[in-house]
Every structure is written in structure tokens, then in C-alpha cells.
Design a protein around this nucleic acid. Sequence first.
DNA 1: AAATTAATGCAATTGGGTTGCAATTACAAA
DNA 2: TTTGTAATTGCAACCCAATTGCATTAATTT
Lengths: 126, 126
Amino acid sequence: MGIIRKTKAVATVLQIFEEKDEAKSVVHLIELVKDKMNKTTVYRILDRLEQDGAIHSFNGKDGLKWYAKCEGCSASHHSDKHPHFQCTKCDKVECLPLEIKIPSIKNHKVDSTDILLIGQCEVCCA
Amino acid sequence: MGIIRKTKAVATVLQIFEEKDEAKSVVHLIELVKDKMNKTTVYRILDRLEQDGAIHSFNGKDGLKWYAKCEGCSASHHSDKHPHFQCTKCDKVECLPLEIKIPSIKNHKVDSTDILLIGQCEVCCA
DNA sequence: AAATTAATGCAATTGGGTTGCAATTACAAA
DNA sequence: TTTGTAATTGCAACCCAATTGCATTAATTT
Ligand SMILES: [Mn+2]
Ligand SMILES: [Mn+2]
Ligand SMILES: [Zn+2]
Ligand SMILES: [Zn+2]
């Protein structure tokens, strides 16, 4: 079970994801709200928002955890299975609205995929 | 620059990768050789072996760092760009000798990919 | 064999993330 | 509105992978 009470801290975190459709690392999020709440609270709120299907998490290239807004997910069904893109110049991370075909692997059962493309984003490419 | 001197510790670590063609987490490697060398030494040897193109690293689903033997890589050219597979039952990780097609992304330049397939391995499938 | 310096051991430290518990606060029931 | 309750938060301590500084050891060169 995720968010039950709409606290100020929850609203603050949610607004960050509403404002701009861009993934954020937990480390960055903690920095952003460090005057408003404790880091433990940030971790717990992110956990609950993910359980509710409001945001989804994945690992960046450095192994840090990142979160981004979900599109059409719910507590019962997380449908975000897209790849992510991380820029080596500016470190920005984007959700990629595309599907990558995974060939079936003999004698293996693939339940989920974790795909990170690394390179240069639109801004840094130019 | 990677390995310069062939020490006993280097030989020990290398042999682990020669023996069996299977990826190993750093945590597991440290455990395997804990009577023979310090954990710092393990980290440093892995760094140097990777620089030399003898092994390559990637992140497992839990965020831990894993290493596996390289095939045809050298210090100047790391050609290992394959996906990896991690079993949710037994935690084993394999290098997958297959290529996954990445569609080109508008205004982005993709330099490398980090693909982890998660599911059940051959043994755990049966 | 002696000199050089890469490699190692060890203790301390860093940093992301978690846990236990007391204090606070949202919210529903009265 | 007031009260009761349990969800939420703050805080300090902790966990653990990974890194760092530095003195010591050992591989390789001369
Ligand atoms: Mn996403
Ligand atoms: Mn591999
Ligand atoms: Zn960029
Ligand atoms: Zn398995």
C-alpha cells in the first residue's frame, strides 16, 4: 500500500515530478528538498509513490537510483517498461517512449528488462 | 595503464575467470579470495584487468558491480557490448552472446548500451 | 645484489540507502 | 469542533559497497 495521507512533504515531492517531465536521481531530489524534509522521508515517499504507480524507478549508469513520472500506471499494474537514456555530458536522464525487441533466449524466461542507453542528449548533441 | 606486474594476487583473480565462464559479483569475488588477499586489492586488480581488456564490468539488478571475462578485447579496444542476464531465483549472471537492435533516437547520439535481462536461467526454468 | 616503483595491507573514510523509535500530524469518528 | 488513531516524519544510528592515504612488501630492472 502506498500513499494514504496527503501530507505537505508528499505534495512537495509530487510537484517536482509534475513540473517537469524529466527523471531525477534520489540524490538530486534529496538536495532539492533538503530544507523541507529529511532524506529518510524522501526515500519513504518515493517508495510509496512507486507502489501507487505514480512514479517508477530504475538505475542510472553510475548505479544510482532514479525516478520518473509514470504514464498510465496504477498500484495494481505498472506498465512502464520503456528504456531510459542518460547523457554523458549533462547527466540528464529521459524516459524513451519506444519498445526494444528482445529476442527470445533459449531455455530462459525473461520477466523484465533494464535498458539504459548512454550517449549525448538533444541539447548536448548540437 | 593496467597490469604491469604478474603478482600472485593477480594470478589468483585471473584464474577464477579462466576456470568458469560465468560472471561474478565483486562481493562474491572478495569472499572467494578473502584468505589470500585484502578486499582493496581485489577492487584494484579488477580495475586493472578491466583497463587491460581482460574482463569487463556491469551492474546487476541489485546495483552491485559484476565482472566477466572478455572475448577479444584489448586495452585499446573494448568490444564487449553484449547484454547480460540475471536469474531471479539463483542470482547467477550470464553474458548473452547476442546483439539487440537499438532503433535510432531523434537528435540523440547513442554511444553505448547497458542491457540487463531479468528472469529465470536454464537451471531454474526447468 | 641493490635500486626502483608497482602492488599490497590496513585502517579510516565516504556515500547511498535502511532501520528503530519517539514525536508529530492527517483525518475520520464522535 | 474536539478527540482518537494510526500514518507519517525527524533524527540518530546503522549497514555495506566502494574509495583513499600511507606505510610496507615484493616484482622487475640495472
Ligand atoms: Mn521511465
Ligand atoms: Mn559480459
Ligand atoms: Zn545532455
Ligand atoms: Zn537460476
